[in-house]
Simulated assay, not measured.
Amino acid sequence: MKAAFFTETGDPEVIQYADLPDPALGPTEVLVRVAAVAVNPIDTYLRSGAIKLELPSPYVIGCDLAGTVEAVGDEVEMFQVGDRVWGSNQGLMGRQGTFSELASVDEKWLYPIPEGMDEKTAAAGALVGITAHLGLFLHAGLQPGEFVFVNGGTGGVGASVVRLAKASGATVIATVGSEEKKKQCEALGADVVLDYHSSTLDDDIQAAAEKNGGIDIWWETQREPTIERTIGMMKKRGRVVIMAGRDARPDLPIGPFYTNDLKLVGFAMFNATPDEQRVAAEHINRLWLGGHWSASVGQVFPLAEAAAAHRLQEENTLQKSGTLQGKIVLEP
Protein backbone atom coordinates (compact mmCIF):
# COMPACT_ATOMS: atom_id res chain seq x y z
CA MET A 1 0.00 0.00 0.00
CA LYS A 2 1.01 3.63 -0.43
CA ALA A 3 1.47 5.59 2.80
CA ALA A 4 2.79 8.91 4.13
CA PHE A 5 5.27 8.22 6.93
CA PHE A 6 8.57 9.25 8.49
CA THR A 7 11.50 7.47 10.07
CA GLU A 8 12.97 10.51 11.84
CA THR A 9 11.44 13.71 13.18
CA GLY A 10 12.02 17.09 11.58
CA ASP A 11 10.47 19.58 9.17
CA PRO A 12 7.72 18.52 6.72
CA GLU A 13 10.31 17.29 4.23
CA VAL A 14 11.00 14.23 6.43
CA ILE A 15 7.64 12.86 5.29
CA GLN A 16 8.02 10.10 2.74
CA TYR A 17 5.32 8.85 0.39
CA ALA A 18 6.07 5.30 -0.68
CA ASP A 19 5.04 1.66 -0.45
CA LEU A 20 4.74 -0.08 2.92
CA PRO A 21 3.48 -3.59 3.62
CA ASP A 22 -0.28 -3.88 4.04
CA PRO A 23 -1.16 -3.84 7.76
CA ALA A 24 -1.77 -7.12 9.58
CA LEU A 25 -5.30 -7.70 10.88
CA GLY A 26 -5.74 -8.54 14.58
CA PRO A 27 -8.75 -10.45 15.94
CA THR A 28 -10.63 -7.30 17.06
CA GLU A 29 -9.42 -5.11 14.20
CA VAL A 30 -11.09 -3.83 11.05
CA LEU A 31 -9.20 -3.35 7.80
CA VAL A 32 -10.34 -0.04 6.31
CA ARG A 33 -9.85 1.05 2.70
CA VAL A 34 -9.13 4.69 3.47
CA ALA A 35 -11.04 7.30 1.47
CA ALA A 36 -10.11 10.43 3.45
CA VAL A 37 -7.94 11.53 6.36
CA ALA A 38 -7.62 14.88 8.13
CA VAL A 39 -4.57 16.81 9.32
CA ASN A 40 -4.47 17.89 12.97
CA PRO A 41 -1.93 20.04 14.81
CA ILE A 42 -0.84 17.04 16.90
CA ASP A 43 0.27 15.31 13.69
CA THR A 44 2.71 18.13 13.03
CA TYR A 45 3.91 18.17 16.65
CA LEU A 46 4.76 14.47 16.50
CA ARG A 47 6.46 14.83 13.13
CA SER A 48 8.54 17.83 14.23
CA GLY A 49 9.52 16.24 17.54
CA ALA A 50 7.84 18.98 19.58
CA ILE A 51 5.90 16.21 21.32
CA LYS A 52 8.22 13.33 22.09
CA LEU A 53 6.57 9.91 22.10
CA GLU A 54 7.91 6.47 21.36
CA LEU A 55 6.76 5.82 17.81
CA PRO A 56 7.06 2.77 15.56
CA SER A 57 9.47 3.14 12.65
CA PRO A 58 8.44 3.74 9.98
CA TYR A 59 5.65 5.75 11.56
CA VAL A 60 2.50 6.32 9.53
CA ILE A 61 1.13 9.79 10.32
CA GLY A 62 -2.43 10.68 11.24
CA CYS A 63 -5.25 10.34 13.78
CA ASP A 64 -8.43 10.56 11.67
CA LEU A 65 -9.84 8.44 8.88
CA ALA A 66 -12.98 7.57 6.95
CA GLY A 67 -13.45 4.74 4.51
CA THR A 68 -14.95 1.33 3.80
CA VAL A 69 -14.45 -1.97 5.61
CA GLU A 70 -12.50 -4.49 3.50
CA ALA A 71 -12.02 -7.24 6.10
CA VAL A 72 -12.73 -7.92 9.77
CA GLY A 73 -10.94 -9.90 12.46
CA ASP A 74 -12.41 -13.09 13.90
CA GLU A 75 -13.69 -11.35 17.04
CA VAL A 76 -15.15 -8.21 15.44
CA GLU A 77 -18.83 -7.76 16.34
CA MET A 78 -19.86 -4.26 15.28
CA PHE A 79 -18.85 -4.13 11.59
CA GLN A 80 -18.90 -6.16 8.42
CA VAL A 81 -17.32 -5.92 4.99
CA GLY A 82 -18.78 -3.04 2.99
CA ASP A 83 -19.66 -0.83 5.98
CA ARG A 84 -18.62 2.81 5.78
CA VAL A 85 -16.79 3.88 8.94
CA TRP A 86 -15.04 6.86 10.49
CA GLY A 87 -12.73 7.13 13.48
CA SER A 88 -9.93 8.92 15.27
CA ASN A 89 -7.36 8.45 18.06
CA GLN A 90 -4.94 6.52 15.85
CA GLY A 91 -1.20 7.17 15.60
CA LEU A 92 -0.96 7.31 19.42
CA MET A 93 -0.08 4.90 22.24
CA GLY A 94 1.97 2.75 19.87
CA ARG A 95 -0.73 2.57 17.19
CA GLN A 96 0.12 3.32 13.58
CA GLY A 97 -1.58 6.30 11.98
CA THR A 98 -4.03 6.63 9.13
CA PHE A 99 -2.23 8.36 6.23
CA SER A 100 -2.28 5.22 4.08
CA GLU A 101 -4.41 3.41 1.54
CA LEU A 102 -5.24 0.74 4.13
CA ALA A 103 -5.49 1.02 7.93
CA SER A 104 -6.02 -1.70 10.50
CA VAL A 105 -8.04 -0.20 13.37
CA ASP A 106 -9.50 -1.82 16.48
CA GLU A 107 -13.28 -1.75 16.22
CA LYS A 108 -13.53 0.12 19.53
CA TRP A 109 -12.20 3.26 17.76
CA LEU A 110 -14.58 3.11 14.77
CA TYR A 111 -18.14 4.35 14.16
CA PRO A 112 -20.59 4.02 11.27
CA ILE A 113 -20.74 6.90 8.81
CA PRO A 114 -24.37 8.09 8.94
CA GLU A 115 -26.52 8.23 5.84
CA GLY A 116 -25.82 11.23 3.62
CA MET A 117 -22.39 12.07 5.09
CA ASP A 118 -19.44 11.87 2.70
CA GLU A 119 -16.04 10.56 3.74
CA LYS A 120 -14.29 13.95 3.60
CA THR A 121 -16.79 15.42 6.06
CA ALA A 122 -16.53 12.35 8.30
CA ALA A 123 -12.73 12.57 8.47
CA ALA A 124 -12.70 16.36 8.90
CA GLY A 125 -15.03 16.20 11.91
CA ALA A 126 -13.46 13.22 13.65
CA LEU A 127 -10.84 14.39 16.16
CA VAL A 128 -12.20 17.93 16.43
CA GLY A 129 -15.78 16.77 16.93
CA ILE A 130 -14.93 14.20 19.58
CA THR A 131 -12.64 16.68 21.32
CA ALA A 132 -15.33 19.37 21.43
CA HIS A 133 -17.93 16.89 22.69
CA LEU A 134 -15.70 15.52 25.45
CA GLY A 135 -14.84 19.01 26.65
CA LEU A 136 -18.38 20.38 26.62
CA PHE A 137 -20.25 17.41 28.06
CA LEU A 138 -17.94 14.97 29.85
CA HIS A 139 -15.66 17.59 31.40
CA ALA A 140 -17.66 20.86 31.56
CA GLY A 141 -21.18 19.44 31.95
CA LEU A 142 -22.85 21.83 29.50
CA GLN A 143 -26.54 22.44 30.23
CA PRO A 144 -29.19 23.95 27.91
CA GLY A 145 -29.45 27.71 28.26
CA GLU A 146 -25.89 28.27 29.44
CA PHE A 147 -23.56 30.88 27.94
CA VAL A 148 -20.51 29.47 26.18
CA PHE A 149 -17.57 31.61 25.06
CA VAL A 150 -15.27 30.19 22.37
CA ASN A 151 -11.92 31.91 21.91
CA GLY A 152 -11.48 31.23 18.20
CA GLY A 153 -14.79 30.18 16.72
CA THR A 154 -13.72 29.08 13.23
CA GLY A 155 -10.78 26.80 14.01
CA GLY A 156 -11.20 23.04 13.84
CA VAL A 157 -12.15 22.53 17.48
CA GLY A 158 -13.63 26.00 17.95
CA ALA A 159 -16.11 25.54 15.10
CA SER A 160 -17.07 22.15 16.51
CA VAL A 161 -17.69 23.70 19.93
CA VAL A 162 -19.94 26.34 18.37
CA ARG A 163 -21.96 23.70 16.52
CA LEU A 164 -22.34 21.33 19.47
CA ALA A 165 -23.12 24.06 22.00
CA LYS A 166 -25.81 25.57 19.77
CA ALA A 167 -27.32 22.16 19.07
CA SER A 168 -27.62 21.70 22.85
CA GLY A 169 -29.46 24.98 23.44
CA ALA A 170 -26.58 27.16 24.59
CA THR A 171 -25.98 30.82 23.78
CA VAL A 172 -22.60 31.10 22.07
CA ILE A 173 -20.21 34.04 22.01
CA ALA A 174 -17.14 33.59 19.81
CA THR A 175 -14.12 35.53 18.59
CA VAL A 176 -12.66 35.62 15.08
CA GLY A 177 -9.96 37.56 13.28
CA SER A 178 -11.63 38.85 10.11
CA GLU A 179 -14.93 39.90 8.61
CA GLU A 180 -14.94 36.80 6.41
CA LYS A 181 -14.52 34.55 9.44
CA LYS A 182 -17.21 36.51 11.28
CA LYS A 183 -19.70 35.53 8.57
CA GLN A 184 -18.49 31.94 8.73
CA CYS A 185 -18.91 31.81 12.50
CA GLU A 186 -22.39 33.31 12.30
CA ALA A 187 -23.29 30.63 9.76
CA LEU A 188 -22.20 28.01 12.29
CA GLY A 189 -24.81 29.42 14.66
CA ALA A 190 -22.87 31.70 17.02
CA ASP A 191 -25.14 34.30 18.62
CA VAL A 192 -22.46 36.98 19.09
CA VAL A 193 -19.24 37.13 17.05
CA LEU A 194 -16.49 39.56 18.08
CA ASP A 195 -13.21 40.63 16.50
CA TYR A 196 -10.34 39.53 18.73
CA HIS A 197 -8.27 42.46 17.39
CA SER A 198 -10.68 44.98 18.94
CA SER A 199 -9.37 47.25 21.70
CA THR A 200 -12.75 46.91 23.45
CA LEU A 201 -12.94 43.11 23.21
CA ASP A 202 -13.21 42.38 26.93
CA ASP A 203 -15.92 45.02 27.40
CA ASP A 204 -17.79 43.56 24.43
CA ILE A 205 -17.61 40.02 25.85
CA GLN A 206 -18.87 41.18 29.23
CA ALA A 207 -21.68 43.20 27.63
CA ALA A 208 -22.79 40.16 25.61
CA ALA A 209 -22.88 37.96 28.71
CA GLU A 210 -24.27 40.59 31.07
CA LYS A 211 -27.87 39.32 31.10
CA ASN A 212 -26.52 35.89 32.12
CA GLY A 213 -24.33 37.29 34.87
CA GLY A 214 -21.16 36.10 33.12
CA ILE A 215 -19.82 33.17 31.10
CA ASP A 216 -20.79 29.63 32.15
CA ILE A 217 -18.17 27.87 30.01
CA TRP A 218 -15.07 29.56 28.60
CA TRP A 219 -13.49 27.38 25.92
CA GLU A 220 -9.87 28.32 25.37
CA THR A 221 -8.26 27.22 22.11
CA GLN A 222 -5.18 29.45 22.23
CA ARG A 223 -1.70 28.17 23.06
CA GLU A 224 -1.16 31.07 25.52
CA PRO A 225 -4.33 31.24 27.63
CA THR A 226 -5.02 34.40 29.64
CA ILE A 227 -6.53 32.83 32.76
CA GLU A 228 -6.30 35.97 34.91
CA ARG A 229 -8.34 37.94 32.38
CA THR A 230 -10.81 35.09 31.92
CA ILE A 231 -11.68 34.60 35.59
CA GLY A 232 -13.10 38.10 35.88
CA MET A 233 -15.68 37.34 33.18
CA MET A 234 -16.97 34.07 34.60
CA LYS A 235 -20.32 33.43 36.22
CA LYS A 236 -20.34 31.74 39.63
CA ARG A 237 -19.66 28.02 39.20
CA GLY A 238 -18.36 28.63 35.71
CA ARG A 239 -15.94 26.27 34.00
CA VAL A 240 -12.81 27.23 32.07
CA VAL A 241 -11.81 24.54 29.55
CA ILE A 242 -8.15 24.30 28.52
CA MET A 243 -7.06 22.06 25.62
CA ALA A 244 -3.85 23.71 24.40
CA GLY A 245 -0.73 25.47 25.64
CA ARG A 246 1.77 22.81 26.74
CA ASP A 247 4.43 25.40 27.56
CA ALA A 248 2.14 28.14 28.90
CA ARG A 249 2.59 29.38 32.47
CA PRO A 250 -0.32 31.81 33.03
CA ASP A 251 -1.08 33.65 36.26
CA LEU A 252 -3.96 32.25 38.31
CA PRO A 253 -5.61 34.69 40.75
CA ILE A 254 -6.68 32.30 43.49
CA GLY A 255 -9.03 34.66 45.37
CA PRO A 256 -11.68 35.28 42.69
CA PHE A 257 -11.21 31.74 41.45
CA TYR A 258 -12.22 29.91 44.62
CA THR A 259 -14.66 32.47 46.00
CA ASN A 260 -16.74 32.14 42.82
CA ASP A 261 -16.69 28.32 42.84
CA LEU A 262 -14.95 28.20 39.48
CA LYS A 263 -13.45 25.12 37.84
CA LEU A 264 -10.40 24.96 35.59
CA VAL A 265 -10.69 21.87 33.40
CA GLY A 266 -7.80 20.56 31.38
CA PHE A 267 -8.10 17.54 29.12
CA ALA A 268 -6.60 15.77 26.14
CA MET A 269 -8.86 13.86 23.79
CA PHE A 270 -6.54 10.85 23.59
CA ASN A 271 -6.90 10.22 27.35
CA ALA A 272 -10.61 9.45 26.92
CA THR A 273 -11.64 5.80 27.02
CA PRO A 274 -13.10 4.08 23.95
CA ASP A 275 -16.53 4.11 25.63
CA GLU A 276 -16.31 7.84 26.34
CA GLN A 277 -15.31 8.57 22.77
CA ARG A 278 -18.09 6.34 21.43
CA VAL A 279 -20.70 8.31 23.38
CA ALA A 280 -19.39 11.46 21.67
CA ALA A 281 -19.27 9.88 18.21
CA GLU A 282 -22.77 8.41 18.42
CA HIS A 283 -24.18 11.76 19.54
CA ILE A 284 -22.42 13.47 16.62
CA ASN A 285 -23.94 10.93 14.22
CA ARG A 286 -27.43 11.60 15.60
CA LEU A 287 -26.90 15.35 15.28
CA TRP A 288 -25.89 14.90 11.63
CA LEU A 289 -29.07 12.96 10.91
CA GLY A 290 -31.05 15.78 12.57
CA GLY A 291 -29.29 18.46 10.53
CA HIS A 292 -27.31 19.88 13.47
CA TRP A 293 -23.77 18.76 12.66
CA SER A 294 -21.23 19.08 9.89
CA ALA A 295 -17.53 19.75 9.51
CA SER A 296 -15.89 22.39 7.35
CA VAL A 297 -13.41 21.10 4.77
CA GLY A 298 -10.86 23.79 3.96
CA GLN A 299 -8.36 22.39 1.47
CA VAL A 300 -8.08 18.93 -0.06
CA PHE A 301 -4.71 17.42 -1.00
CA PRO A 302 -3.76 14.06 -2.48
CA LEU A 303 -2.06 11.88 0.12
CA ALA A 304 1.15 12.13 -1.90
CA GLU A 305 1.30 15.83 -0.91
CA ALA A 306 1.20 15.20 2.85
CA ALA A 307 4.31 17.35 3.35
CA ALA A 308 2.62 20.37 1.74
CA ALA A 309 -0.45 19.77 3.91
CA HIS A 310 1.74 19.75 7.02
CA ARG A 311 3.36 23.02 5.99
CA LEU A 312 -0.04 24.64 5.59
CA GLN A 313 -1.17 23.36 9.00
CA GLU A 314 1.94 24.70 10.70
CA GLU A 315 1.62 28.10 9.03
CA ASN A 316 -1.85 28.44 10.50
CA THR A 317 -1.22 26.83 13.91
CA LEU A 318 2.20 28.26 14.74
CA GLN A 319 2.58 31.32 12.52
CA LYS A 320 -1.16 32.19 12.68
CA SER A 321 -1.20 33.04 8.98
CA GLY A 322 -4.99 32.87 8.84
CA THR A 323 -4.99 31.35 5.35
CA LEU A 324 -7.02 28.28 6.27
CA GLN A 325 -10.75 28.00 6.86
CA GLY A 326 -11.84 24.49 7.73
CA LYS A 327 -9.88 21.27 8.03
CA ILE A 328 -7.16 20.01 5.71
CA VAL A 329 -8.23 16.69 4.19
CA LEU A 330 -6.09 14.24 2.24
CA GLU A 331 -7.32 11.58 -0.18
CA PRO A 332 -5.25 8.46 -1.02
Rank of each mutant, 00 (worst) to 15 (best):
A124H: 00
A280C: 13
T273Q: 02
G290A: 12
E224A: 15
L53I: 08
R311P: 08
E119Q: 08
F137E: 07
Y111T: 13
L289N: 05
A132Y: 01
G232M: 06
E146Y: 05
T317G: 06
A122V: 03
A187I: 10
E305Q: 15
A190M: 05
I15S: 02
T175E: 10
A307L: 06
T221S: 12
G213H: 09
G322H: 09
R286M: 10
F270T: 14
D216T: 06
T68G: 11
A308D: 14
V34A: 04
M243T: 11
M234G: 09
A4T: 02
L55W: 10
E77M: 12
N271E: 13
T7G: 08
W86T: 03
T98V: 00
D22N: 04
S178I: 01
G152Y: 04
K235P: 07
G245Y: 15
K166W: 10
Q143E: 12
G266N: 07
L110D: 04
M233C: 14
L201W: 10
F6P: 10
L53K: 15
V34H: 01
H283F: 09
P27G: 00
S100C: 10
Q90F: 10
D19S: 09
R33D: 14
F99W: 12
V176A: 05
S321N: 11
D204Q: 15
V32H: 03
A4G: 05
G255R: 14
R84E: 13
D203K: 12
K263S: 14
A159C: 07
A295T: 00
D275P: 02
E314G: 13
L31F: 09
Y258Q: 11
A306S: 10
E282R: 11
M269V: 15
V300I: 15
K236H: 12
L92A: 05
V329W: 00
F149V: 07
V157C: 04
Q96A: 06
D203S: 10
P256E: 08
P302R: 08
G245A: 11
N212D: 11
P250D: 06
Y258P: 13
L46V: 08
V14H: 03
T273V: 08
Q143H: 12
E276F: 01
A170C: 09
E54D: 14
V157Y: 03
D216P: 08
A66N: 00
E115F: 05
V72F: 04
R84L: 10
S199R: 15
L92V: 15
K320I: 02
D247W: 14
P250M: 03
T9R: 11
A304P: 03
E29F: 02
D216R: 05
G189T: 06
M1D: 00
S57L: 11
H310M: 10
E115T: 15
T98E: 02
E77Y: 04
G169C: 06
S199A: 12
V128Y: 02
T7C: 08
C63T: 13
K108F: 12
G125N: 03
F149E: 04
Y196R: 13
E146F: 01
V69R: 00
T131I: 14
S57N: 11
L134M: 13
L188W: 02
A4F: 03
E179M: 08
M269P: 04
